[in-house]
């Protein structure tokens, strides 16, 4: 059993917004958390969380300045679990409608603005329905989460869509491709429902870290 084994998670800090909540939520799930902008620390962690706030262009510029774009590509290539939250999820994709910025290109697909027929940004709680078992939830389960966003993602591969939500249109609220994960909502701001998702994801990290350690004996 790997339950309870310590896992280290690097939370990427690029200088904007509240990182305390995600840190505490990951710690509540039993992870050892470092909030960092140091590529070496990100390299050493068992998993990486990329919380995004602010504008896409500014966030990408900052990541580039910090040398983190390359680092993120490397850890993802090694199949380390990587979770992008909100803007952090949108930046997983290459094509960003916002300001014609290019994202990280870790997932195939596009990002587009929410329809002008609804109030934008969407701010508040909305429901997500799971389409497959993942991140602590089972297929067909529904729960309410806290969203703050003006853009939504459109992955090329429908198999990557873990959960969907409706606001003006139906959009993916959780995605996953191998070990690259994204949530459009803020699990760290979604009360018990969000803490359950984080705990489920950290369990996956624990399993993945244990596998890696078995392959590479110390």
């Amino acid at each position: 059993m790997t339950v309870g084994a310590p896992v280290s998670i690097a939370v990427i800090d690029y200088g904007a917004g509240n990182l305390r909540s995600i840190r505490r939520a990951l710690e509540a799930a039993g992870a050892q958390v470092t909030v960092t902008s140091d590529p070496m620390v990100v390299h050493r962690a068992d998993a990486v969380v990329f919380p995004g706030v602010g504008a896409a262009g500014a966030a990408m510029d900052r990541l580039r300045q910090l040398g983190l774009v390359t680092t993120i590509g490397e850890v993802v290539a090694k199949d380390r679990p990587f979770l992008g939250i909100c803007l952090g999820m949108q930046l997983l994709f290459d094509h960003q409608e916002e300001g014609n910025t290019r994202g990280l290109g870790l997932l195939q697909g596009r990002v587009h603005a929410l329809s002008a027929t609804v109030k934008v940004p969407q701010i508040g709680w909305n429901r997500a329905r799971w389409l497959q078992n993942a991140a602590g939830y089972n297929e067909a389960e529904e729960e309410d989460f806290y969203f703050v966003h003006s853009y939504v993602i459109e992955p090329d591969d429908l198999a990557d869509v873990v959960a969907v939500t409706r606001y003006g249109e139906v959009f993916p609220s959780v995605v996953r491709h191998n070990q690259v994960w994204g949530t459009q909502f803020h699990p760290e701001k979604s009360g018990p429902a969000g803490l359950r998702l984080i705990a489920g994801w950290v369990d996956g990290v624990r399993a993945s870290a244990a596998t890696t350690r078995e392959r590479v004996p110390a």
Partner: peptide, 12 residues
């Protein structure tokens, strides 16, 4: 896949 999900946008 989205049948029955709320259509009213985020909750009040």
């Amino acid at each position: 896949v989205a049948a029955g999900l709320p259509e009213t946008g985020p909750y009040r």
